[in-house]
Design a protein around this nucleic acid. Sequence first.
RNA 1: GCGGGCGUAGCUCAAUGGUAGAGCGCCAGUCUUCCAAACUGGUUACGAGGGUUCGAUUCCCUUCGCCCGCUCCA
Length: 604
Amino acid sequence: MAEPKENVLMEKIVSLCKRRGFVFQSSEIYGGINGFWDYGPLGAELKRNVKDLWWQSMTRLREDVVGLEATIVMSPEIWRASGHVDTFADLMRECPLTRKRVRTDQVEARSGMAYRFAGAEVAGTDGRVEKAFAVLVDKGGHPESARKKAREFFLASLPAADGDPARITLLGEQTAAVEDSIDFHPDSSVELGPSRPFNLMLQTWVGPIQSDENVAYLRPETAQAIFAQFKNVLETSRQKLPFGIGQIGKAFRNEVTPRNFTFRSREFEQMELEFFIKPDEVVEAISGSVNTQPVEGHPGEPQADWGWQRWHQYWVEERVRFYEGIGLSRSTLGFHHQTPEELAHYARATTDILYKFPFSKADASGVVKGDELEGIAARSDFDLSQHERFSGKPMGVFDEELRTAWTQLSPERQAELSRRYFEARLRYLTKAGLPAEKGDKEAREDADGLAKGQYIPHVIEPSAGVDRLILALVANAYSEVTETDAKGKSETRVVMRFHPRVAPIKVGVFPLLKNKPELVSKARAIHQMLKSEFNCFYDESGAIGRRYARQDEAGTPFCVTVDFDTLGEKPELLDTVTLRHRDDSRQERIAIRDLVGWLRERVR
RNA sequence: GCGGGCGUAGCUCAAUGGUAGAGCGCCAGUCUUCCAAACUGGUUACGAGGGUUCGAUUCCCUUCGCCCGCUCCA
């Protein structure tokens, strides 16, 4: 089994993170707090580099994406519109048998005969369990159906039964008539467990009074703020569809089980893009057709005739390029295309980009796919539509191109596109729970809007976890080198092979010897010169080899050493330094005046 | 949330119902002309709380944290 080994690797990584100051446990001196982690000096640099690179490549280098920085606490209405409140902030009760949950206030009252059991045993063995379990049997129902469920329930806690319900003897059976009880699961009829709040959102109160009216939530994702501010950004940024809004920020989830170091934390950071596109009907009206030709890999520069599928693929490939650009090669990544059952009801497609972490498990066929770094979801117009309904504010856009194009279409084409748009809107409105008549009317209005150049944008959402990415980069960089020295003493040391772009320290600067003032002052001058542009580390303590080794462990890709040749011992080498490479210990000679340019090329 | 394992220095690991030790690291110094050299000195720990006891790091209870499995995962 490879599992223990992988565990050891993970433990080494956690240990290194602490030892070198990448990641500390939050509140460690008070015993820590589950699911929260701090970044130490090296981790903070690493994380900053990653976020800056994302921001750079997603917003500044593009003309079609702008940024946003919204608050963590927002109107609770946002979370009602997004569905987070309904799904996660209610009192829920769980069926102990099927583990299915129902909202406490939504259990239908039922009547019938309750069959109660005090426990069960496996005759002839010491297998015995005492646990209350009850099932409701409707009038006319067979008692044996209750006993069957009870055996099934106790089976899990009775290994002695060897998986065979027939070997289980039920204990302490009692029956009682029940009237209008809300204690039984509507599907399984099993008596529900205690009512508990299942809050995946962290809560707080806004204002000094801790009342229900003042409850607010720490955002469980950064995305909703983008939707909520969509119109403001549209109106102020001089962008036109298709365009995107990017945001980096903290999010909070009260995870049931934080696990795997920083992978699943309760406070974490996201890098999210909401890229708004025209609905396929609009693309077709403007371009004449929607390009749905499947292509391998990156589909190239965006085109006017791209529908949501192309855009989705485009963003998946853009994101893979990003990961490749910071040292995560395609072979370290995995992909998961969510199945129709996994997809949220409003999503059309979601592709997860995975990284093969040391703790990643093999699936049933023995393949390690990895764990999620990022999900790229095609979310239709669900989010903007929700906010339009909940806020009462229009979320649609006006598209000059569409209005002009529409007049050029034949009446048949107009009718066809209008009908398809109507049907899509109606599907959404029906799912949203609008009465048939009202839904039909609104969908009709939406479809009529096309002729006026109006519609609600669809969205592609690449949503990445910063902390997960940091962990992936750390795991990916981790390597051990075992060397045997001249005396035959072998030693294993750690080399963090970060891509220079993300490395916390870009360059170490050393005088060869510290008791030679000329070397020291020259090295300090070089450090001074470099530090305004690169994160540098000056070190003069101990032997030179030790300093190299320390930088290897911090993942510093390059080190510069000032020696006697720098000072002109060999005249032709005056003002040159040794440049040492982390990954292969290679050394080369480079002129001090070329240093900045040389580094810039490799570190940017 | 349930079950199992684990918590001694920054790290890896000892020992003990009665003063907690080593190696490595780290810091300072001497020395050192390129890969954790040597020497000298220094640094730091029984996760927390309670109980039993003359005395608890050791025994007991509780709690917190970490790891593993199950569960959960918008």
